[in-house]
């Protein structure tokens, strides 16, 4: 029996790619920490990198804004492309890359300056100082922090709570109008309420930004992401050193409901071992 053509579900068009890697590997010295990662990160979605500790999630994330360049001995092989630009081309200036591809860190790291100066910092660096007050306010509003701090813009950012500090760091990152926001376990230092607010915020932000988030919290990945990549560690063939490998990359609900690889299934069902 033939299925009427009309019943064919049209193949969902893959969303345009924001970032892609091809055979990406990262060496620390002569140790290959992550190996042979090939994936496409879709635009305007939230992509989560999950996996056990030490599987290279953060290392992978730092390839996208070339933060690995700052680590002595780190070396990237393979290709990372942003649109159709090779981010590791010799002509690429990593400083400019980091303006387009912002980053939020694991521990909230506001500058020991006022709330206002924290958000204005990047704007001043990039000479985006016309309507500085408006830009600062806008960034703080988008980071859902404006109502908390509007009366205390001149107060030290260090007086804020951990969750507020992390939202301030997000405001600081999006103030310079990046295209992509990388988040390296942004909630691991926060309590569940603050975590919830950051996750809500991510949903707001994905309309304007492509978000990549590293997390080892699977519930968070399931709740908050559209796509998920599962990485794991593999023992090196000739030694006891471990290296990170990409196991599976799929839409999040696919990955969580129909994992294609037994290792993924073991991990998400808690039988990892």
């Amino acid at each position: 029996m033939t299925v009427p053509a009309a019943l064919h579900v049209p193949p969902t068009e893959a969303p345009p790619t924001a970032l892609a890697t091809e055979g990406l590997g990262v060496y620390y010295g002569d140790w290959l920490a992550v190996d042979d990662i090939t994936l496409q990160v879709p635009r305007h979605h939230i992509t989560a990198f999950i996996g056990p500790s030490g599987c290279g999630k953060s290392t992978l994330l730092r390839c996208f804004n070339r933060m690995n360049d700052l680590i002595a001995g780190a070396r990237v092989v393979g290709r990372v492309t942003y649109g159709d630009v090779d981010l590791y081309d010799d002509r690429i200036d990593p400083v400019q890359v980091r303006r387009r591809i912002g980053m939020v860190f694991q521990r909230p790291n506001p500058f020991p300056k006022s709330v206002y100066d924290n958000v204005a910092y990047g704007l001043r660096v990039h000479a985006m100082t016309e309507d500085l007050d408006d830009r600062v306010e806008d960034a703080l509003r988008r980071a859902a922090l404006w109502d908390d701090v509007k009366g205390a813009l001149k107060k030290s950012a260090l007086a804020l709570s951990g969750g507020q500090q992390q939202r301030l760091c997000i405001a600081r990152t999006i103030a310079v109008e990046p295209d992509i926001v990388l988040m390296d376990e942004p909630c691991s230092a926060l309590d569940p309420i603050a975590t919830g607010r950051i996750e809500d915020l991510m949903q707001e932000l994905r309309r304007d930004y492509t978000i990549l988030i590293v997390t080892h919290n699977m519930q968070q990945a399931a709740r908050a992401s559209d796509y998920a990549a599962f990485l794991t560690t593999e023992v090196d063939g000739d030694g006891d050193r471990r290296r990170g490998k990409l196991v599976e990359f799929a839409a999040t609900n696919e990955l969580f409901t129909h994992p294609q690889d037994p290792r993924t299934e073991n991990y998400i069902t808690g039988r990892f071992g």
Binding site: N65, M67, L70, V95, Q96, V97, R98, R99, R100, G102, M103, F105, R107, N109, P110, F111, P112, Y121, G122, V125, H126, C169, R172, T173, V176
Partner: peptide, 18 residues
Amino acid sequence: VPDDLRNASLALGTRKSR
């Protein structure tokens, strides 16, 4: 000075000297 602060600044696309 914690490296966190250096990284925070560099991740915003700031030159090292600045």
